[in-house]
Design a protein around this nucleic acid. Sequence first.
DNA 1: TTAATACATCACCATGTGTTAATATGATGA
DNA 2: TCATCATATTAACACATGGTGATGTATTAA
Lengths: 118, 118
Amino acid sequence: MLTAAPTLTTLKAKLFRGLADPSRLALLEALCAGPQTVTDLCAATGLRQSNASNHLACLWDCGLVAKDQDGRFVHYRLSDDRIVTLLQVTEQILTDVARGVYACTTYATPDDAAPADA
Amino acid sequence: MLTAAPTLTTLKAKLFRGLADPSRLALLEALCAGPQTVTDLCAATGLRQSNASNHLACLWDCGLVAKDQDGRFVHYRLSDDRIVTLLQVTEQILTDVARGVYACTTYATPDDAAPADA
DNA sequence: TTAATACATCACCATGTGTTAATATGATGA
DNA sequence: TCATCATATTAACACATGGTGATGTATTAA
């Protein structure tokens, strides 16, 4: 590919990959409202417990979320406020290029159906 | 997964996925310097021509890049200046959470080796 | 101790996805 | 026309990745 050692570009791609899954993004967006337990997050996102736990582990590994143990509960939260900024900028860009993202099927996520309304 | 119809979250994830590959990210970063032909981009990124062309097609489909035909040359360019902003914010976040992204192997890209220096 | 709750981990499977080589298209110049 | 350059397209392959269910581990309460 590009280089053997992890370059800044590679790291950036990896960070984006952390955001490039609807489940993980849903978790992050749910966490924008404040710290949540895994059970809360499952309820908010509709994910199975094991699935949510897997994705949260990924997000935690990547440093995108932090967690605080509280008895048998684990409260997850965003580790950095700029993640919100990132999501906001993305949303703004999406406003303009949404049509394209909509249409892009080359490396599409499996769960987007054909648009019901243009 | 979450919903059947493409939600804003799904679209956002898709947009991030467009940025979540080292090759595509390298192409976008190369384009930050200005419009480039495919051959130029191949030289700048080390990608094979067909591979670069594939990724550029994806980026174009997603609306992240625009292209201008010029004889047998095609000049690609970023379609939106805010893409640069997105990359910059990401780089800033990376500065702080880089250690985590470094260590995250759950959904790692294949091309990052173990760090030589912690 | 036993049961129940909250969460993590694991192996499996189906599918997504990046790369490559080969080939096609299309434009330019001799 | 023919050769060449610039780019796009395609099929095929190997591998990454997300989802699931089963199970493991703490923690709490009775």
